[in-house]
């Protein structure tokens, strides 16, 4: 039981799932995915130094609707510094795969092992693309720096994405889910902001009852 004043600025996806004791809905999945890729894009220079796990505790939803993906917490021993190829950090596609798994598990939360949730085909396809990302093409692992810096230019956002190679591709697919793609930043931020606010409201309510 915390004090009355200091509300947290962020909640982990794990905390959100536990509090509601139910999976996230599809709109929240699209939103978390978009927002997380937006923050990962903004921080591309700071690639995680070790392979990410795929735990909901690593994904944080912030009060302002931002979503971040952190490395494992301090309670987990750090994995070996380099993977089998000797790389010292995750590739963009490995991070995307982890994110896809985290989001799928959040949609699957509470279901029995022999049960499967029926997802809408576009969302299932998004997660399928994300979680197969490392198998489809590893050729662009490290070469992103000079390749797509012009992404704020929206001209190419109308093309269809048939495979995922980057955070930007994930964001394009999420934007294509909306009636108006240009609404994506505001819409998805609002969905995540609401997810945080509603969870905090529930948290406060439950704390009062206790």
């Amino acid at each position: 039981g915390g004090g009355s004043g200091g509300q947290p600025e962020a909640l982990s996806l794990e905390e959100i799932l536990r509090l509601y004791n139910q999976p996230i809905n599809e709109e929240q999945a699209w939103a978390v995915c978009y927002q997380c890729c937006a923050s990962l894009r903004a921080r591309r220079g700071e690639t995680p130094t070790a392979r990410l796990g795929a735990a909901a505790a690593q994904l944080r939803v912030w009060r302002d609707g931002a979503v971040t993906l952190e490395q494992d917490g301090p309670d987990r021993p750090p994995p070996p510094a380099a993977d089998k190829s000797g790389r010292l950090h995750c590739t963009e596609m490995e991070v995307i795969e982890s994110l896809g798994i985290i989001i799928y598990k959040a949609l699957d939360y509470g279901l029995k092992e022999n049960e499967e949730r029926e997802l809408s085909p576009p969302l299932e396809q998004l997660i399928d693309y994300m979680t197969n990302a490392t198998e489809t093409d590893g050729s662009r692992d490290e070469g992103y720096d000079a390749l797509d810096e012009g992404v704020e230019d929206d001209n190419d956002d109308k093309e269809e994405v048939e495979a995922i190679h980057s955070y930007k591709d994930v964001m394009k697919l999420c934007a294509a889910h909306l009636p108006t793609r240009s609404e994506a930043p505001n819409h998805y931020q609002a969905v995540c902001r609401a997810l945080f606010a509603e969870t905090m409201e529930l948290y406060t309510f439950l704390a009062k009852i206790k």
């Binding site: 599809e26 799928y104 022999n114 049960e115 949730r117 029926e118 997802l119 979680t131």
Partner: peptide, 23 residues
């Protein structure tokens, strides 16, 4: 505790859940 907002089906061996659980 309203009704579920999604449909559940038996897990399929070639479905996305099976694929992801193998990761």
């Amino acid at each position: 505790k309203g009704k579920s907002l999604y449909n559940i089906r038996p897990k399929h061996d070639s479905g996305i859940k099976a694929k992801i659980s193998m990761k």
